[in-house]
Amino acid sequence: MRKIIILVIIFAWITAWAEDDIISPSNFAPQAIAAKQIAPGASRPFSFASSFVLCSQKTDKGTNADYCETPHSKIERNKLESLNFRIDGNIYNITWPKTENTKGAENWSGHSFGGGLFLNAHYSFLLEIGVTPMLVQWIGPIYVAAAYQLSLGHYFGTDEKNSLDTKISQNLFTGTFNLGGGAMGFINNHGLGLGAHGGIRQIQVLNAGYKEYTATDYRTGNRINPESRDSYKIKEWIFYYGLDLLTYTNLPLLNESDSKWHCGFMTSIEMGIRTEKNPLTYWSLSLSLII
């Protein structure tokens, strides 16, 4: 447990010092596994995830300044890079149909038309919290999902030396969508699953700006009256796809293996599909435990 905490702290602080902040809902594939009940009785996913967003810069030929132009925003900066680390946990869920036998069975393949309504809470470094209601429904081998994240965050800017500065900050309460679906194949004799999912998600990239002193104290010579400059917000839709690798248990051997319940572990990688109109690049890695 201590090693996990240390790894989380290290990873979180690496991401916390990125210049920009990302706000986007979490991956819905773990919830799809919980709804499928391929590991009977396991319906609460908990995840760690890290995401990053970059922008393909263009150069203004007249001014020679770099800028990032998305379908709804034009940001004049020489670099746009955002990194994010978050922890998600399921606080409440309703899944259907009810799984009568949670001890497992040979050739148990989950519910073909399983579904679920999930309420997840998240904490994103440094100072963002939120809740995400999510709906997932399987239709045979595929599933569809919809999630809407409400988040409240306090985001910091940088000083004139480009270091984190708490005096430059912005608060933001916002909502972002994640819509899509996926499919997964299960190798039941091994307890392995391979899946792909995709869809369209909203990405919000925010920068609280940098500090610029606007006046000088002539008595001391110090620069005073800091103000925020160049803060911006980008909110765009991007198409993305993801690959999922799952390991789970569902054999009727709980007693023989001295286990209390079945569970699953999933690794997912998501990648945004860049188009000519939208130069944002999105990439995310998440690790999820479903218990």
Binding site: N189, H190, L253, S257, G264
Partner: peptide, 14 residues
């Protein structure tokens, strides 16, 4: 068989 899945490990312990 490549014993890498959850059920493989469960079977081995059981």
């Amino acid at each position: 068989a490549i014993p890498v899945g959850g059920n493989d490990v469960m079977r081995k312990i059981a």
